[in-house]
Nucleic acid binder design. Structure first.
Lengths: 200, 200
DNA sequence: CATCATTGTTGTCATTGACAACTTTGGGCG
DNA sequence: CGCCCAAAGTTGTCAATGACAACAATGATG
């Protein structure tokens, strides 16, 4: 009864953030189709048109969600890399982190890579993707410095790694993968050694 | 005037297929948000509730679309592999085919990998994904036979390849990639040689 | 040729996204 | 200090949609 008193202010205080939070919860709990601006408004205790002040569109809200998703993913990857003893371990940690994120935020990841974003935010989105890829890039660059990674355009190498990680995470989130962590280790190992037989 | 006469039959003949066709066109031309059962019905010249006889749900239609997408993708990959002189060329052809498909059917690919499918079709869908992966698998198995691919569980190797292909295609469809074909060749090359420096 | 499952049809409902017009709030400025 | 106005919320409305129920045409099958 008394708990909700603070809600009654005419100005919500931080409706935008509240909507995004609520949206993300709904997204992961009940899927994208359950996401409605009006319901978010109801949950936030505001009128059905209030969200319009913060997001011109439903799509605008989804875009904001996607953007914050990339930023969070980047933070997760950043943290994961800390303290890895060598590059192989670094990459494995990144792979684990990416996959964990994908499994815990499946619907959000869908949104992030959905090809329907407004053009006015796609710049920011592209930048966020770039920032995320930079984490992989720095792992590769470091590996080249220590001689653990083959020479060559580090950007191209990082992109290959990122592609594999993303693909693996996609399949994992789709339940295509049985023993995720085991598969993941094997994938990273193969990525390092390559598919061609080694002379050895 | 006379052209549309056949439309006037009470029974459409093959409404289900017509709806799927129309849906796919709409999807690729105007995106997923433009897809409405009622509009599909209008385009097919039937009443707004007719689609309900063929798809219990909007989701059911999307599921059917995804399923046929995987089947088409598989056919494309199958065709692409024919006549490749060696395994590296085979994999490159698969990569090209997958990427082409992703670029030409971006919205459809989103749908195919969307994690919101009805449980009653997810079996069929999983099978279709498996069939698709089998194409990669046979390329790997062939490569192992000829000694072009390293020994080891071919399933695991194929899965690594598929992950990389899918990830690359995802990024490509998102315009994250600049020179697609060049990048693609580099990715496949790196996949073959691995990230670790070779002794050679 | 009568039956009846299929496939369409009309009608209706609640929900939704978008927008327009109006109101409340509170910070900044004179 | 008090006015003013832009930001943030509100109510009201509309057309579109997905879902469903009740009914009708069709044509294959016995």
């Amino acid at each position: 009864m008394l708990a909700g008193m603070a809600d009654r202010r005419y100005h919500h205080g931080d409706l935008r953030a509240a909507l995004l939070d609520s949206a993300e919860r709904t997204l992961s709990e009940r899927g994208p189709s359950a996401l409605s601006l009006r319901e978010l408004a109801r949950e936030a205790g505001v009128s059905h048109a209030a969200p319009g002040r913060h997001f011109k569109d439903k799509q605008a809200l989804l875009d904001a969600l996607a953007l914050s998703g990339f930023q969070r993913l980047r933070a997760v990857l950043d943290a994961a890399g800390q303290g890895a003893p060598d590059t192989a371990a670094y990459l494995l940690a990144l792979a684990r982190a990416y996959t964990d994120f994908a499994l815990s935020n499946a619907a959000l990841l869908d949104l992030m890579y959905a090809r329907k974003h407004d053009s006015d935010i796609s710049d920011q989105l592209a930048e966020a993707v770039g920032d995320m890829l930079d984490v992989v890039l720095s792992a590769i660059a470091e590996g080249q410095r220590t001689g653990e990674i083959t020479a060559g355009d580090p950007g191209a190498i990082a992109f290959t790694v990122a592609s594999t990680l993303h693909g693996f995470a996609s399949f994992s989130a789709n339940n295509t993968v049985e023993h995720v962590d085991e598969s993941l280790r094997e994938v990273v190992r193969l990525l390092m050694t390559g598919l061609s037989p080694r002379a050895a």
